[in-house]
Amino acid sequence: MRTLARTAGNGLGVPEPGTATPSRQGGCETGCTTPEDRSANQREDRGAAKGSDAFTRGVAALTQYIAREGKTVVGRGHVEHLPDGTTVRLGVFLSNQKSRRDRLSEQQLATLAALGLEWAA
């Protein structure tokens, strides 16, 4: 037979009715955040930075590709190698940007349009 550890309350590890558990005790008058709130904020921050970095790498890869090939038409499977050693799946990048263009910022659209992508204009 298993026994529960004795704690404050009714002695069976369960708080007595009407007593507050640590998560319900309050003690936070202003500006409190839960661990879930903090991790969600961190995810949002990382996501924004990550997306911005990815966009910047994609634009660098597209610029390099245009300079070399003289065109903006890229096959979906094309991979571009940047001078810093990173690789960009340029075809996938462009396909994703085009399909998500309604969520791109005006600055991102202007950047892509300046490179000659008609759908971004």
Score class of each variant (00 low, 15 high):
T30N: 06
G26S: 04
V14D: 13
G75R: 13
N96R: 09
R100Y: 06
N10F: 11
G91P: 03
R57F: 10
T56V: 05
T7Y: 10
E16T: 10
A49C: 07
T56S: 05
P35I: 09
L94Q: 03
G11F: 01
Q108V: 02
L104M: 14
G116A: 06
A54F: 03
G58N: 04
L109H: 05
C32I: 08
S95C: 08
T33N: 05
V74F: 09
N10V: 10
H81V: 11
T111Q: 15
T7A: 02
C32M: 07
L12A: 05
R46G: 01
R38H: 15
G11V: 07
T111K: 07
Q108K: 10
A49G: 12
L112K: 04
R6Q: 11
G58R: 03
E80D: 06
R57M: 01
F55Q: 04
T72A: 10
R100G: 12
G77W: 07
A61G: 00
L94D: 04
D37A: 08
S52Q: 07
N96E: 14
A113C: 06
Q107S: 14
R38I: 13
G116K: 04
G47V: 01
T30W: 15
Y65N: 01
E36R: 14
R43S: 08
A114W: 00
D53K: 14
A61I: 03
R89G: 00
A40F: 00
V88A: 02
A48W: 04
A120V: 11
S52A: 12
A40V: 04
C32P: 07
L82W: 11
Q64M: 02
E44R: 14
L109I: 12
V59L: 01
L104K: 05
L12T: 07
W119I: 07
E118F: 04
A49L: 11
A67C: 02
S52W: 04
G18K: 08
G13K: 03
R6Y: 02
